[in-house]
């Protein structure tokens, strides 16, 4: 569904992505793991057009979206849950959710709102509350719910478990599973490599702007390089 070929991204003089190629097939969960600064978030930002690619191509459902503006990319069905949640603190939960559906016309928004509320009953209870007053876990759920309001085909999540208590992390992973079972394709970045690889159909390991390893989640879990560096095993 999504194909990235030889993608290069620069931040000023810094070569952040040095030719990344990866593939996200429909209805799969794909994960990117890697250390800080490896280029995981940059990859996601490049896919949704928040940073511009210097070279290479990004194709989504057969269409080249490398130079498309973010608005169009969101309309085509790619949405990102940004790192660190980034909900709109002084807007209500409901307003946040409607903002997720910004690029859509009326039809289906109400249905998706009901779906998001059924996924996250807490959000329904707090729909009139300002998003900034929610707890960290609730904010993460709001961020996911907001992204789902765009009715994406491909949902990209940037470290959804960041800064959450272990119990909540488990809950987030359960929700990812549930969203996936509704037919969404998921591209997941996680620092919790073990959980991510257990969940994912396929994984890529990034190091300083390059993909150094790839394989199914199970394959990567037993690879020595991965176990030593990302799972902390001897």
């Amino acid at each position: 569904m999504l194909n990235i070929a030889d993608l290069h991204v620069y931040y000023g003089g810094i070569h952040a992505l040095e030719g990344i190629s990866l593939e996200v097939p429909a209805n799969k969960i794909i994960t990117l793991i890697g250390a800080n600064g490896a280029g995981k978030s940059t990859t996601l930002r490049a896919i949704c057009g928040l940073v511009k690619a210097a070279a290479g191509s990004i194709t989504f459902q057969g269409e080249d979206i490398t130079r498309a503006p973010t608005t169009q990319i969101v309309q085509k069905g790619i949405t990102m849950v940004p790192e660190g949640r980034r909900v709109f603190p002084d807007l209500t939960v409901l307003e946040n959710l409607y903002l997720g559906a910004y690029t859509r016309k009326n039809s289906g928004v109400k249905r998706d709102l009901d779906w998001v509320f059924s996924l996250f009953p807490r959000l329904k209870e707090r729909k009139g509350q300002l998003a900034g007053t929610l707890s960290g876990g609730e904010q993460q759920m709001l961020a996911v719910g907001r992204a789902l309001m765009a009715n994406p085909t491909l949902l990209m999540m940037d470290e959804p478990s960041l800064g959450l208590a272990p119990l909540l992390v488990q809950e987030i992973f359960n929700i990812i599973k549930e969203i996936h079972s509704e037919g969404k394709t998921i591209l997941l970045i996680e620092q919790n490599a073990r959980a991510a690889l257990q969940l994912a159909d396929y994984g890529y390991v990034l190091e300083t702007g390059r993909i150094v390893l790839s394989g199914t989640g199970k394959e990567l879990l037993v690879r020595d390089e991965v176990r030593k560096v990302y799972l902390g095993e001897e």
Partner: peptide, 23 residues
């Protein structure tokens, strides 16, 4: 209106607003 909501989203967090597809 949805424009007003987009204005406020830009005020709150430009990056998140852009990621939502708000020009």
């Amino acid at each position: 209106s949805s424009y007003g909501r987009a204005f406020k989203a830009i005020r709150e967090d430009e990056i998140a607003a852009e990621a939502m597809g708000i020009g």
